[in-house]
Design a protein around this nucleic acid. Structure first.
Lengths: 342, 342
DNA sequence: CTGAAAGCGCTTACAG
DNA sequence: CTGAAAGCGCTTACAG
């Protein structure tokens, strides 16, 4: 049988309460006593039963998720995954509070983070805006002992405990390679649309895309990057204009949101001769349909459900100082074609 | 506070033991009493704390994994994932026994399954060989109450409780589309290598590949399918011969294992003019390196770690009659290019 | 067929 | 600084 706290108590010649104090690094134990217990723990090879501990504590992990608001389909999906997880909170001993903040708004995010300072939750998952004032607010929060995981959009590694999201430079490179391969030796122009060059993810994707496309298809020319601010209407206008300016456009890469508008603009040209190779990010009802009808050629995706579940697992583990299964927490860059849709 | 068994007992006017009997569908409760308790459960909205239940039961889930032996890198990876999970068995309250059986050997698998009949484990995960005698053996095992999950290679759905693996027809279609797109309008011949046409997965992949390639690139001609029996040496010979017979070969699709040999054959022609577009299955040390050096263009993959963890989660849930998070248990068809390698 | 009591492995007041 | 006892939510002999 696997050893329990009783075995440690006996081996160390102390009571259960003392074992517990040592196990949980609580103060009020003589150094000598502590040493005795720690020795016994090591000797016996004790592995703690966290489930039993949580039961005894009636423990609930208070978790906060901070997600940008707006009609963006990806963020809506992310939010609904958080809600789904909240629906399992009983079984997982978590209490999730989901807070909406205005998108791309560092000041609002800071305010939200500061509001958590009063009753700091055990863990926070936040879609980060990468700004100095946000860094400072996160630093303060972490000083209270709160574990902070960035979600989807990262911060410098030293500022957070973990990142639940994809490597966006690699995602951009992947898009670049697919574009280059699908256009196999063709010459022509490729349009790139970003949400905003102020956001780290988008900058990263652009960097990767440019590098790789230049690498493997130097005959393709990337047009000046356009910004949609993740707004479908803006994306629609940008794509429609580009298509009429460049009737032979070879490719389109939308590395931001607003695909609804992009699809609409492509739809209008569905029966034109040369339709551009189109690669976008995030599987949503709109991009899924466009992939199925052939308007879009590939969708790069990050699995929002995986990100949320992973953030929760990592938060719980870090709160308890427990290890995680690293491979399980790596978020893949999914490539979806029409044929491998989930 | 969330209701507990005590609340039910009180509401139903019975003892804890009776509540427990009803909760666990144990016999020896008058229909009337049972109804009273069930009523109280529904009325109060009771959700059982499985962690507490497992603690009280000192429950350990005895699980068996049956995996084909052989030097196949993918299966080796699968095996090591099972071992990694076994290493976490303390924390997850599981006891995993890993059994090796000869590959593609229905009789050996049947024997193995029959040996489990003596002390039937709570759950079995098996890389299935699709043969009538295997069907029968699984049926007998399930009659003892054992939950059976197929792993990697499936059986007809009615015969097992769950499949932890990918849709191989879709995987074949995905390969077909990539091949067609990467060859963009080129004419030429495409070689296909299977492990064995006796295995369901391989048949499925071939079917999907043929269908899609014919669909989107009718100018490409698929050569008669070759069988490597998943042997690297055989794969090497087949590829080398094909390359010398068809110096302008447009593409190669290996839907089985043995990639080590395939890579070696390609390597020998590294500096030849037209290297064929090459698509293979399963990310292993060999295919990873070939992807990185550019000998292979794309690797379709199923995440063995995910499959094993998923199989365990599903087995535990089914054993307890608990629900699972469906999206979490769907195994993706990963597409790896050089740029999105994990 | 039903229930009172002890126990799973850990934690928490409370007393000393 | 240390310990005895009760308790977390559920289950299990055992007695009736």
């Amino acid at each position: 049988m696997r050893p329990t706290v009783h075995d440690i108590a006996e081996a160390a010649g102390v009571s259960l309460a003392t074992v517990d104090r040592v196990l949980n690094r609580r103060p009020g134990v003589r150094t000598q006593t502590r040493a005795k217990v720690e020795d016994a723990i090591a000797r016996i090879g004790f592995i703690r039963d966290m489930a039993a501990a949580n039961l005894a504590k009636s423990r609930i992990y208070p978790l906060v998720f901070i997600v940008p608001q707006g009609e963006n389909s990806f963020m809506a999906g992310l939010r609904s995954e958080v809600e789904a997880a909240a629906g399992r909170s009983m079984q997982e001993r978590i209490a999730i509070r989901l807070i909406d903040v205005p998108a791309f708004d560092a000041a609002a995010l800071v305010k939200c983070l500061e509001s958590l300072l009063e009753i700091p939750p055990a863990g926070v998952a936040v879609v980060a805006v990468d700004a100095p004032e946000v860094h400072a607010a996160i630093e303060r929060l972490r000083e209270t002992g709160t574990i902070v995981v960035t979600l989807v959009s990262d911060l410098p590694a030293a500022l957070r405990d973990h990142f639940a999201g994809v490597d966006n430079v690699a995602a951009g490179r992947t898009a670049g390679r697919l574009m280059g391969r699908f256009l196999a030796g063709r010459q022509g122009k490729v349009a790139v649309i970003a949400g905003s060059m102020l956001v780290g993810d988008h900058r990263d994707r652009l960097e990767g895309f440019r590098e790789r496309l230049h690498d493997i298809a130097p005959s393709l020319q990337i047009l000046p990057v356009m910004e949609s601010h993740d707004d479908p209407n803006a994306a629609h206008a940008l794509v429609a204009d580009t298509l009429s300016d460049h009737p032979n456009l070879a490719g389109i890469y939308n590395l931001g949101a607003g695909n609804r508008g992009l699809v609409k603009a492509l739809e209008a040209r569905r029966h034109a001769a040369g339709v551009p190779v189109t690669i976008v990010h995030e599987l949503t009802p709109f991009t899924r349909e466009a992939l199925q009808t052939g308007l879009i050629d590939a969708v790069l995706n990050q699995d929002a459900g995986h990100e949320v579940r992973s953030a929760i697992r990592v938060l719980k583990a870090r709160i308890d100082g427990q290890p995680v299964v690293a491979a399980q927490e790596r978020i893949r860059i999914d490539i979806f074609l029409k044929d491998n849709l989930p």
